[in-house]
Amino acid sequence: MSAAEFSPPYLSPNAIDTALRERGVGLLSGEDSAAWIGVPLADLRALEPHWDRLAPDAYLKDGGRYRQRRHSCFVVDGERVALEPHRAHWQPVEYNALHGGMQRWFEPMEAAMVNAPAWSLLLRRLAAAASALRGERPWYVEAHPFRIDTTDGIGRPTPEGAHRDGVDLVAVFLVQRHAIKGGESRVFEANGPSGQRFTLRDPWSLLLLDDRRVIHESTPIQPDPADGHGWRDTLVVTLRAGGFQGE
């Protein structure tokens, strides 16, 4: 960790529901994230090869080639996890000024990842956190495995800037970092002066956000060393009550 980096203020797993309710944000280390989900960390790490087979994002309005991703949708109702028919990802311009209003058809997640037992446990645990925050109900879930790389010399995890997603709960897992600098996470109160900044480095560490209360962004990445090629892999999962955006 460089001298300029801020360490993540990790919590214990049993403090997450309270932190989300009181402050709108909670952080878990990789080991605690796995324990919170109820799986060995090795089972989460076994999903990592899927990030090597993501598809290029053809919708970047800045013309960049630095983002690869997939996208699949689910409904989680209690213990039931259902994969939904493949659909476009859509956000209103109020939440994504750069790419809002577009139907973006990304390649679906690979079946082997969707069918992994750790995957359904991960979605159930996130749905339980959303229910603790908002009350029990079915949750409409969109999952986005991302790779941001330094193909263009700089990669932008959030080219739209600081934003909300228009959902109830946002989960950002830092899956892996390789040969980069930057990629600082920043979280701000949507209607207040407070904010936090930190750099996630621990594989499968988890940032949970109450999307009604906070806005978030990640700073650009650059290769380190400067003549190398690096990347930052994340898994973003959003949960929304009442239906998918755009329905």
Rank of each mutant, 00 (worst) to 15 (best):
Y95N: 12
V81E: 15
F146L: 06
E110N: 04
E94Q: 08
D227P: 01
T150Q: 06
L207Q: 02
L207R: 00
A3T: 12
E136F: 03
K181T: 15
L126H: 15
F146G: 00
L235W: 06
A129E: 10
D168Q: 11
Q176E: 15
H86S: 14
L207C: 10
S218R: 13
F198Y: 06
P49M: 04
V114M: 13
Y10W: 14
G228S: 14
L60E: 15
N191C: 11
R213C: 10
G155E: 10
V170C: 07
D152M: 12
E184S: 09
M109L: 15
W105L: 13
P8E: 00
I180N: 06
A46P: 01
H86Y: 09
A34K: 05
E79H: 05
L28P: 05
F106D: 01
G24I: 08
I37V: 11
L60W: 01
A58W: 08
E31G: 04
T199S: 14
H86C: 06
R87Q: 15
M102V: 14
E79W: 03
H229N: 01
T151C: 06
W90Q: 09
G195I: 02
Q222M: 03
P138K: 08
N191P: 00
E247R: 10
P220H: 05
E142P: 02
G78W: 03
V39A: 11
G101V: 12
R240H: 07
D168V: 07
A111M: 10
P9D: 04
D52V: 03
G78E: 07
I215D: 09
E5S: 14
D32F: 10
T234H: 00
G26L: 10
G64R: 07
N14I: 14
W105D: 12
R137N: 03
A55L: 11
E79V: 09
R104M: 13
D224C: 12
A88I: 06
E48A: 11
Q91M: 05
G38K: 02
H163F: 06
P92L: 03
T150W: 10
H99D: 15
R201V: 09
V187F: 04
V170K: 01
G24C: 07
V214W: 00
A112K: 09
E189G: 13
S131G: 09
H50D: 12
H50V: 11
A171T: 02
T18P: 03
Y95A: 09
N14E: 14
V141N: 12
L27F: 07
D224Y: 05
L20D: 05
A179R: 15
N14V: 11
G246I: 02
D17T: 13
A162C: 14
D62F: 04
N191R: 11
D165G: 06
N96E: 14
P8F: 00
G192E: 02
E22V: 11
F146M: 08
P13D: 07
E94H: 03
Q103M: 14
E189C: 10
V172N: 09
W231D: 09
V39N: 07
V81I: 08
R23I: 05
R67W: 09
H178R: 12
E5L: 02
R186E: 12
G78T: 02
E84Y: 07
L207W: 00
P85V: 08
V75K: 11
Q196L: 15
V141I: 04
I180E: 02
E84H: 11
A111E: 13
A15D: 15
E79G: 13
R213F: 08
S33G: 14
